[in-house]
Design a binder for these strands. Structure first.
Lengths: 352, 352
DNA sequence: TTTTTTTACGCAATCGTTCCCGGTAACCCC
DNA sequence: GGGGTTACCGGGAACGATTGCGTAAAAAAA
C-alpha cells in the first residue's frame, strides 16, 4: 500500500527546470521571472503538489507538532481543554499529539520520553496524580524544551502556567455551604502533592476559619489517583459517613471525585442534599441532568487549552530565550443547583 | 529556544568512525565487530542518543503517524474510542493526530486535506453528519491511502469498517419499549444520510412492524447536526410533543440526541418516563446518575477504537495491496433503567 | 563597442539516517 | 605465494526541500 506524492523534482523534470528554481518559484522569490512562476504554479496546482512536511521538518529542525500529556482524554475537563488546544494549534499550523498518563508516574515518564524522541517542538502538561518526582520535567526544561503547564502545575519549574483560581473556587463553594446551613463540611481531595489539591484545600480551610469553624483533619480525605478508581472514592466516602460525627456536606475537589462520591452516596442510599450536601469541581456536560442536579465549580477548560497553546507557541517561536514567565489565573464558575441547597429550606422543595 | 539533539554524526566523530558504521552498529548489523558495537552502543547510551524520527520518516517515506477525524472529542463515545485508538497506536509505535469535524462538511474536507498533506500513513474516520458527498474520501482511497471507517461508515467505499450492530440495538430497544406498554414510539434520529441513521431506523421500524405497530413517519424526526446544536433537538422534540397524537416514548438514535432530548423534556416539565419514556444510544459515563436514570444502548467504544486501529495498521504494513475487506460488527449493550421502565408499573415505583 | 549591472537560473551543500557499493586487510587453501 | 574468502569498515548517494553562491545571458551604462 503506498500513497505516492508528487515532489518538487517531478515538477522540475516535467518543466525542464532545476529543483531550486521550482522551489523558489513556489515561494514566490524575486529571483524568478513572472513567466516561470506562472508555469510552475499552474503545473503544481494541476498535479496537486504539496510540500512534504517531513522534509521541511528535517531541514528546519522543527516538526510543527506539539505534545500533550493529560491524565485521561475521556474526562470532560480534559477533552474540553484538548478541544481548545487543538483549535489554536490548528490555526497556527501545528498538530497535536495526545497521550494519557492515567495518573501513573510510569506512564507519564514513558510518554514524555516517547514524545521528546518524536521531536516535538513543545509540550503542554497536566501532571499525573502519582507524580511526586519532577526531575524528568526539570531536565527537559533545562535542555530547552518549551513547556507549558495547565491545571496541575509544578511550582518549582519556571515556565508558563495556566490555572483557575483554585483557592477562590474552593473558598466560595465552602462559604456557600456554610451560609446555607451546612456546618460539618468534609473535603474529598486528590493526591496530596498536587498543586490543585494544595490550593483548593487552602481555600476550603480559609473559608472554614473565616467563618469560625475549626478545621478537622479527619474530615479531609485524599484519593491517590484522583478518583480514577472508584474504590478509592468508596473508601474515602465510607470513612466519612461512618465516623462518629458524620459530615453534613462534602466538597469534592476533582471531576471524578464529584461524580464518584455521588455514585457512592447513592449506592449507600444517602440522600443528597437531605442527608449530605454535595458540591464539587466538575466540567461534566450533564451535571444539570443528574439527580440531584449537581452544584459545581466549573473550570473554563476550553479557554485554558487555548491560552496554554498560545503561550506554548509564543515560546516555541520566540527568537530569543524567554526568561520572564507568568501564570495565567482564570476565574472558575460556581453553579449552585439542588445538591448543595440549604438543608432546611430544601425540605420544602422535596416533592411529596 | 532550541532543543539540541545528538545525531549519529556526533557519535561517529567522537569515536573516529564513519556514520555508516555507527548506523550499522546501532542496528546490530552482522558486518560490525562485537567490539565496535559495544563501544558505539555504550557511547550512544551515555550521550542519550535517539534516532531522529523525522529523518527516518523521510528515508522510509512513512511517518508512523495516523490521522483521526471525528465529529467531537468532548463526546463520551468518541473520547472512549480515541482512547482505544491511542492505546493500540502507541503499542505499535504510531502516534495519533486528531481532528474534529464538528459535523461540518467543510471542516472535514479541510482537515482531510491538512492531514494528508502532513504525510500520515493512514486514516481512521467517523463521517460528519453534514457530509453527503463522499468524493474526497473516495479519491483518497483510490490513491492508495489506507482508510478505516468506524461508527459512521460509507458503504460505497470498500475498505475496513468497524461498527456496532445498529439495527439490532435499535430493534431491541424498541422491542423493550413495546413490551413494556409503550405504544406510540417516536424516533429522534441523526442526519438522514448517515449509515447509523439508516441502520438504526431500520431496526426501529422492523421492531414496530414485527409487533404489529404501523410506523408513522411523523414520529420520526431528523437532526441535521446530530444534536450538536441543542436548538435542533428542541425543535424536533417540540414538534413531537405538540402533535395531536403525542408519542408516549422516544428512541433517541445518538449520544447528543439522548441527553439533548432529556434536557428539553425537563425544560418542558414533561415527566420521564411518566409522560414520555426515553431510551437512547449513549456512552455517557454518568447516565446512571441522571434523573431519571437513563436507559441506554451503549457502544463498545474503546474496543471499536482498538479494532479500527489494528485493522488500519494491518493495512499500512501489509506488503501487498489488500483487496478483501471486512466489516467488523460488534454487539451493543442495552442497559435498562428508570427512563424506559414500564409505564404502568412505574407508577408504583414513584416515591410519594 | 566594451564594461558593468541586472536578471534569472543552476549547482551543490544541508538536515539525519540508511544502504548499496567498494575496499582493505587478515586468513585459508592448494 | 597467488587466488579466494571472510570480516570489517568507509564513501557517497538518496529521501524532499531550502538556500548561499556562482554564472550565463540580457540589459544598462560607459
Amino acid at each position: 500500500m503506498k500513497f505516492e506524492a508528487v515532489t518538487i523534482k517531478d515538477i522540475a523534470k516535467a518543466l525542464g527546470l532545476s529543483t531550486s528554481t521550482v522551489s523558489r518559484a513556489l515561494r514566490d522569490s524575486y529571483e524568478i521571472s513572472p513567466e516561470t512562476k506562472k508555469v510552475v504554479l499552474e503545473y503544481a496546482e494541476k498535479i496537486n503538489y504539496h510540500p512534504n512536511p517531513i522534509a521541511l521538518s528535517l531541514k528546519e529542525r522543527r516538526s510543527r507538532s506539539i505534545g500533550v500529556i493529560v491524565s485521561e482524554i475521556a474526562n470532560s475537563f480534559f477533552s474540553q481543554a484538548i478541544d481548545g488546544i487543538e483549535s489554536i494549534a490548528y490555526k497556527n499550523g501545528y498538530n497535536v499529539i495526545i497521550s494519557q498518563s492515567r495518573e501513573s508516574f510510569d506512564r507519564e515518564s514513558i510518554h514524555l520520553q516517547y514524545l521528546t524522541s518524536r521531536s516535538i517542538d513543545g509540550l503542554i502538561i497536566s501532571v499525573a496524580a502519582e507524580t511526586k518526582d519532577f526531575s524528568h520535567f526539570k531536565e527537559l526544561h533545562e535542555r530547552g524544551m518549551p513547556l507549558v503547564f495547565f491545571d496541575r502545575i509544578i511550582n518549582e519549574i519556571d515556565t508558563y502556567k495556566v490555572i483557575v483560581d483554585n483557592y477562590q473556587g474552593a473558598y466560595d463553594a465552602t462559604r456557600y455551604l456554610i451560609e446555607n446551613g451546612f456546618k460539618r463540611i468534609a473535603a474529598l481531595a486528590n493526591n496530596e502533592i498536587l498543586s490543585i489539591t494544595r490550593d483548593r484545600l487552602a481555600g476550603y480551610k480559609a473559608a472554614l476559619t473565616d467563618h469560625g469553624i475549626k478545621t478537622d483533619d479527619s474530615f479531609i480525605k485524599y484519593c491517590e489517583h484522583g478518583g480514577l478508581r472508584l474504590e478509592e472514592v468508596e473508601q474515602a466516602v465510607t470513612e466519612l459517613v461512618s465516623a462518629e460525627t458524620r459530615p453534613d456536606a462534602i466538597l469534592a475537589l476533582g471531576d471524578k471525585l464529584t461524580t464518584g462520591s455521588l455514585r457512592i452516596l447513592k449506592a449507600k442510599k444517602i440522600e443528597v442534599p437531605g442527608d449530605i450536601g454535595l458540591i464539587g469541581f466538575s466540567n461534566s456536560e450533564t451535571s444539570e441532568l443528574i439527580e440531584p442536579p449537581l452544584s459545581i465549580i466549573k473550570q473554563p477548560a476550553f479557554e485554558m487549552g487555548e491560552i496554554a497553546t498560545d503561550l506554548l507557541i509564543q515560546l516555541i517561536e520566540s527568537k530569543r530565550p524567554v526568561t520572564s514567565f507568568e501564570t495565567k489565573k482564570l476565574a472558575p464558575q460556581i453553579i449552585i443547583r439542588e445538591s448543595a441547597k440549604n438543608k432546611n429550606k430544601s425540605m420544602l422543595n422535596v416533592e411529596f
